[in-house]
Simulated scan of single mutants.
Amino acid sequence: MEQLSSNRSHGGMQGVYRHASAATGTDMTFSIFVPDHAPGTKLPVLWYLSGLTCTHANVTEKGEYRQACAEHGVILVAPDTSPRGEGVPDDEAYDFGQGAGFYVDATEAPWATHFSMRSYIEQELPALIGAEFSADMDRQGITGHSMGGHGALTIGLRNPGRFRSVSAFSPIVAPGQVPWGQKALTGYLGEDRAAWREYDAVALIEDGARVPELLVDTGTADQFLEVQLKPELLDGACRNAGIALTQRLQPGYDHSYYFVSTFLGDHVAWHAERLKA
């Protein structure tokens, strides 16, 4: 693992690291903020998954989470959204290929060789974080934005014993029912819609996946609200399943990091309450 940068901030250290990934067969980059803590103390971990076109840098530079993480003693880890580099396939569209991994393990050529973001986020990177940092891997939460909100919801629903808390910003709640998701899931997984269901939060809930509660924020001025996000589908699925969903439609906010940064500290505090020892 190679440290690319380290900066003091809010009584903690913001680092960016690169490492060779067995899951993707490429180098991968992630950022991590570690608040100051007593020697030997292990801190809970909050995962933040980013959206289409993003890298680790978007939330690191625009998220405004460090003050809240320092206050509550929470590590925040922000991975990249896809494999990158020489020999990694790509697509000219912004919503597929590099920067648009959709947190799946691809099964279709040519994507299957490198696009194993599910395995990377669920298995490989947590093992690295647990080994190299002062992280209490028994206390993990997960959140994300847009495509990353989809990732947070699906990974949280598939791994309820690992994640004590799950939240999202402007998530794609039912990718199998909207253009972004239909394009990505067809490209990465093929035409069999049954294979899509484990990567679709609404479908997972319909198929029996359960978490105690969810927190979701979406802006009422989000330009993707009606066509791509469809928060009402998550409302219905959670109501039918008895999952306590706090879904807040924030008046006047759009899809940008102006929105995410406004409420990310609030999400950190919400997760911290649920990640107490």
Rank of each mutant, 00 (worst) to 15 (best):
P89G: 02
H255F: 13
A269W: 02
T143H: 05
A93C: 10
G148I: 08
Y258N: 13
T143C: 15
A152C: 07
K276T: 11
S170H: 05
G161E: 07
G40L: 11
H267Q: 14
V216T: 10
V211N: 02
A93V: 13
D136I: 12
G242V: 15
L264S: 00
S116G: 03
D90P: 00
L214V: 07
Y17F: 14
L153V: 09
V16W: 02
V88H: 01
G73T: 04
L185E: 02
D36C: 13
A241G: 08
T107C: 02
A244I: 11
P231Y: 04
T81F: 07
E64I: 11
P79V: 11
V268R: 02
Y65I: 12
V260D: 00
V211W: 03
Q14L: 15
P251S: 14
T154V: 14
V178G: 00
Y257N: 09
Q247K: 15
P110E: 01
P39R: 07
Q123E: 15
L189Q: 00
E92L: 12
W47V: 04
Q182I: 06
T107R: 03
T55L: 12
L189N: 00
E206Q: 12
S21W: 06
A244N: 08
G151N: 06
L52P: 08
Y258W: 13
R84I: 10
T246K: 15
A106F: 00
A70S: 15
E2F: 05
P126W: 10
T60N: 08
D95P: 00
L204P: 02
Q140T: 14
F115A: 01
A272K: 08
D27K: 10
A195L: 12
M13S: 11
P251H: 12
G40N: 07
A237D: 03
L153P: 07
T262A: 15
T220V: 11
H114C: 02
L215M: 10
Q228G: 07
L125N: 06
Q123V: 14
A241S: 08
M1T: 08
S119E: 01
E71I: 09
F115G: 00
A100H: 03
D138F: 13
G252C: 12
V216M: 09
P171T: 03
V104F: 01
K62N: 10
G15P: 04
A68W: 08
L4A: 01
L46A: 05
R164Q: 13
